[in-house]
Write a protein that binds this DNA or RNA. Structure first.
Lengths: 253, 253
DNA sequence: ACAAATTTGTTCGTATGTATG
DNA sequence: ACATACATACGAACAAATTTG
């Protein structure tokens, strides 16, 4: 990019010397762009660079930065060094209770939940899975991998392991309808609860980053939960990876 | 690095053609190096590169890799592309109950807990802190930042915010002894409990990475907990940052 | 592993307008 | 009228983080 030495008129004209500081006018202009009734920007969308904005408004970069500071302090945008500024995404809460279901948790926050099945297969249980489900190694388990979305934005990848011998129809049921709760209900488990949850954080695999539509440089929250039936017998091992920027876990005591 | 075309004798000699595969011999040799009675390697310490090991054992790099695979599958080491192989660190559990204290949680897992105060100051409450503690913005709060260690390894940084007006002696008490529990007890709060906890994950700041002695490329788990007294009044906002590689959170339901 | 390009963050310096005493 | 303090605005240079090839 070559810098043109000419003075170009700014696209947006500000009222100079009228009692309202330039940076305030810029802040409200950007705010209108973000939440404006006309074309509202999507949460997570990237704002123009500081250089672009200062050109557009015909001001120094510092003046734009002062406006950005204001918007960030008010929680409307998120600025990241080296990456840019982004329309703030609202962070959803995921309550870690014994009975929380993804769909309910999202609905309670007035978002539209959705699920997309990524893959359903039957595999042999490795050590970790077998131990969690109380099976012997190598026993068949159904593995269902599901992407959970809120308002169309991906927020979680869930890997669900269920004993194939106890639930012979599970693979078909989940192929029809991605709801684990529904498939378990049709398999004679009307209710189940979360027994224990381990929470860790790590960097995403390339596939996880793609599915969650997030940068490979941001971490995922990982929960590993064992779900048991009314009798306390494990029916599902669930490993979920949350986009940490869009979802936080909440424990009520 | 230039590859020397000469054949140099390996430092460690293996038994070839004796019924035990080379990679198994190498695996047990490395295992002895790691956990050996002689000079045990510290958890988190870096192993020699694959090239160095293949030179030392006089085998192809693939053979060393086969041994590494085995050790990684058994959880003894952790291999990271582009970084190297490291002696596995044991991951401690931190139970997120209403009454869990750091010291007890570490002791229950037979580790030696320790705490080092990083800084104690009195500051004006910003919006987030004020809201959590039920104060007005700008009211004075004591901020105590503490590094928690297990067996001498840093595992958590805790930032503790307490209302300075309710606890006028807090700054002095914490300067004497870094225990929050003790300082609260001496301030007329013999017991407190965790009301709610939010859990997120993010990349560490440079300072956090240094304090936790971890790579800036690995995430930290962040918990934000509000602690209340027997009457349910908030007495402390606690923001903790855990080295995700050394600590995982556990919720029992 | 490295270098280049892009983008935000920080720190100088300079100048102007406004409110205060 | 003058001095002072403060917020605003501009310019330049460099530092730091990220992305890309």
């Amino acid at each position: 990019m070559v810098e043109l030495p000419m003075t170009v008129p700014p696209d947006a004209v500000l009222a100079r010397g009228q009692g309202v500081s330039l940076w305030r006018q810029i802040a409200t202009a950007i705010e209108r762009d973000i939440a404006g009734s006309a074309g509202a920007m999507q949460p997570g969308a990237r704002l123009p660079t500081e250089a672009a904005l200062s050109a557009r408004f015909g001001v120094n970069r510092h003046t734009v930065r002062r406006a950005m500071e204001e918007l960030e302090a008010r929680g409307l945008i998120r600025v990241e060094q080296g990456r840019g500024a982004f329309v703030a995404e609202d962070v959803l809460d995921y309550p870690l209770g014994p009975r929380t279901r993804f769909t309910e948790a999202i609905q309670r926050q007035n978002r539209e939940p959705a699920g997309r099945m990524i893959r359903i297969t039957e595999i042999a249980a490795e050590a970790q899975v077998a131990k969690a489900l109380g099976l012997r190694r190598g026993r068949p388990v159904v593995l269902a991998e599901r992407l959970g979305l809120a308002n169309g934005r991906p927020v979680v990848i869930g890997s669900h392991y269920l004993p194939a011998q106890r639930f012979p129809l599970m693979l078909d049921l989940l192929s029809e309808n991605p709801s684990i709760t529904r498939a378990l209900a049709r398999s004679g488990v009307p209710d189940y609860r979360r027994r224990s949850t381990r929470i860790t954080a790590r960097m995403p695999t390339p596939e996880e980053a793609t599915l969650l539509q997030q940068s490979r440089a941001r971490p995922v929250l990982v929960t590993e939960a064992i779900n048991v039936d009314a009798a306390g017998v494990p029916v599902e091992l669930s490993i979920a990876r949350y986009a940490a920027a869009r979802m936080q876990l909440v424990v009520e005591s």
